[in-house]
Design a protein around this nucleic acid. Structure first.
Length: 599
RNA sequence: GACCUCUUAGCUCAGCUGGUUAGAGCAUCUCACUUUUAAUGAGAGGGUCCUGGGUUCGAGUCCCAGAGGGGUCACCA
């Protein structure tokens, strides 16, 4: 019985190959690697056996790998589904690793257990020959423990759920958990995240941690009675921050629109409207450089709560971060590049003045722009005329202080010039009630006692405009509607923005933002257009020669441009000889016809 | 945007001062094997050496230009 199926199969094979080797399928086949061709032949062979490689029906599992391992005992009837990640075939018995959403589990396939009757094709042909690493299968069977003590499932039934046509990278993990031949090229990993997730252990965990971070925030804020909201991504005035926006165009209104650089001004309008607390996970877009900590689109969680100030916000923040770290690690401590970061409150609070004083010896208090410029130059910071007081102080802090704050630290009381949306400090009008949370030398959050004095806000916007005229191309636009909203009255409010991507980096020990974004921005990939055999034939290329022209690299009419007839004829006849083609050699006239048709 | 650097088989990588037919491990294919686990043993196939020019008797290797990636810097509330 088994033999008769194999012989039926071999007929299928040859029939398939024969029909494939005629026209367009052959051309596609030329583009594929050997391994892909073999997998497509297996696909056809499965169909020939009456097995649909992409079945529509639901497949219901009873277990997933991780829980099964935890609750394991011998003799359980289980149904699992997942991807075949490895196979160890030993004649009439085999072991395989199946990978589902939780992890992997070992399968034991015994020919006579899987095929108790006369027909052994499911084991001998389907499993051993036609299935590959990467294919999805569903199995039912009984749990048992092998002689070497490995938890396994003795497979009694096997269902093909999806055939994989491209081979996965051959990553192997040894007994010590050491990864061999890792799929490590960042370009390939980010462009094909789906492969990265399948093949590299640990990648999933990063994104599960990311989800936990967001869940913890939601649970905490919802518990406090604050409302999660959605505000416009397409904005006529890109406000709330200073950055170069992406511009697009709305056809019906015939106006330019900008992708938001921030959502701050909209959330404040909602506080004006009477919500006590609102928050949003805001995808922001900034048309600026990309590097290890910047992606053109990134996520900021913004929260605004009425009747609060920035001291309250500091407490709220440190408690929240501590909860988040607990949720991710089960502990308030996280390891970052060998340094232990402790998220347990309270965090150190340092004023910007003290920070700069401590690390540069410069006291910014009461200094004029000229004095600050001199101070910058003195500590080796280059300045130019477009830089105002705020920018100069920002440079001092960014260059000389920022990197010192490794453990979570609130840097507070920023100079008024660098904080146009922040209320002035209750004790000193030169400063504002603003803090940034620094972790590992990077800014993770930015918060204020929000400016709710409409006249002061208008004045600050105008000061920004003046900076813009001096050449600071990131000064803010004036949002008249936002000012009108403030004139209706906004209660005292504290707000914060937390950079979710950077926070996740800190919590997952990643040094690149690309590692915490599922699909980081990349230059678009250029795909081969593939051969254009009809285009070639339109030039007069015979059906017999078309595949060989393609095979030699002249796969579309454009590829013939500017070639000399003699040269092309010589090349193709050489190809004919090398590949021992049983077709007439090309004549010069024939080649000339093609080329003149093209040119 | 500047500089440095990388690109060789499906994956990870060797390849010397330029020199026969470009190699290895895994993966793939064939055969053997009924409790293995980086399974094992025997055999086989698989390459646009990123692309395009140039130097040379001869280029994976040297030169020029380009593409894509990574790093450092610049930019970045």
């Amino acid at each position: 019985m088994c033999c008769s199926i194999s012989s039926k199969l071999s007929i299928v094979y040859s029939a398939q190959s024969y029909s494939a080797y005629t026209t367009s399928n052959y051309l596609c086949a030329m583009q594929r690697t050997e391994q892909e061709r073999i997998r497509r032949e297996s696909l056809a062979a499965l169909r020939a056996l009456g097995i649909e490689p992409y079945p529509a029906a639901e497949f219901t599992v009873t277990h997933r790998s991780k829980r099964l391992a935890a609750e394991f005992k011998d003799g359980l009837a289980v149904t699992l589904a997942g991807r075949i990640m490895s196979r160890r075939i030993m004649g009439k018995a085999s072991f395989a690793e199946i990978q589902d959403s939780e992890g992997t589990f070992q399968l034991y396939l015994n020919r006579d257990e899987l095929c108790p009757g006369e027909d052994k094709a499911l084991y001998n042909t389907v499993f051993k020959k036609l299935l590959d690493r990467g294919d999805f299968i569903g199995i039912s069977g009984e749990t048992f423990t092998t002689q070497t003590g490995e938890q396994s499932v003795m497979v009694k039934e096997l269902t093909v759920l999806s055939k994989s046509l491209k081979p996965l990278p051959a990553v192997k993990v040894d007994e010590d958990g050491k990864v061999h031949d890792a799929f490590a090229d960042p370009e390939l990993r980010y462009r094909m995240r789906y492969v990265d997730l399948v093949v590299n252990p640990g990648v999933k965990e990063t994104f599960e941690a990311r989800s936990k971070v967001m869940q913890t925030i939601r649970t905490s804020f919802d518990g406090a009675g604050w409302l999660e909201v959605d505000t416009p991504v397409l904005q006529a005035i890109p406000g709330g921050a200073a950055a170069r926006p992406f511009v697009t165009h709305h056809n019906a209104l015939d106006i330019p629109l900008y992708l938001r650089i921030a959502n701050e001004l909209y959330l404040k309008r909602l506080i004006v409207g009477g919500f006590e607390g609102v928050y949003e996970f805001s995808r922001n877009f900034r048309n600026e450089g990309m590097d290890r900590t910047h992606n053109p689109e990134f996520t900021v969680m913004e929260l605004y709560v009425a009747y609060k100030d920035y001291h309250w916000m500091m407490q709220t923040t440190e408690n929240l971060l501590s909860d988040i770290c607990q949720a991710v690690h089960g502990d308030t401590k996280a390891n970052l590049n060998g340094t232990e970061i402790d998220f347990a409150p309270p965090y150190r609070r340092v004023t910007m003045r003290d920070a700069i004083l401590e690390h540069t010896g410069v006291d910014i208090d009461g200094k004029s722009e000229a004095e600050l410029r001199a101070a910058c130059e003195q500590v080796g910071i280059q300045t130019d005329d477009s830089m105002g007081k705020g920018k100069l102080i920002d440079e001092l802090f960014g260059e000389k202080c920022e990197h010192h704050y490794v453990q979570p630290t609130f840097i507070m009381d920023y100079p008024v010039e660098m904080s146009p949306l922040t209320k002035v400090h209750r004790d000193n009008p030169a400063y504002t009630e603003r803090f940034e949370l620094m972790i590992n030398g990077t800014e993770v959050a930015n918060a204020y006692s929000e400016l709710n004095d409409p006249d002061d806000q208008r004045q600050r916007f105008e000061d920004q405009l003046k900076l813009g005229e001096r050449g600071d191309d990131e000064a803010m636009f004036i949002d008249q509607d936002f000012l009108r909203a403030l004139e209706y009255g906004m209660p005292p409010t504290s707000g914060i923005g937390i950079g979710i991507d950077r926070l996740v980096m800190m919590l997952t020990n990643q040094t690149s933002i690309q590692e915490v974004l599922l699909f980081p921005q990349m230059r678009p990939e250029v795909f081969d257009q593939g051969p254009d055999e009809k285009g070639l034939q339109a030039l007069g290329v015979s059906e017999a020669w078309t595949p060989h022209l393609v095979g030699a690299g002249f796969d579309r009419p454009e590829a013939l441009e500017g070639l000399s007839p003699g040269g092309l004829r010589e090349k193709m006849n050489g190809y004919r000889k090398k590949n021992k083609l049983d077709i007439p050699a090309l004549t010069l006239e024939e080649v000339e016809t093609w080329l003149s048709a093209r040119n």
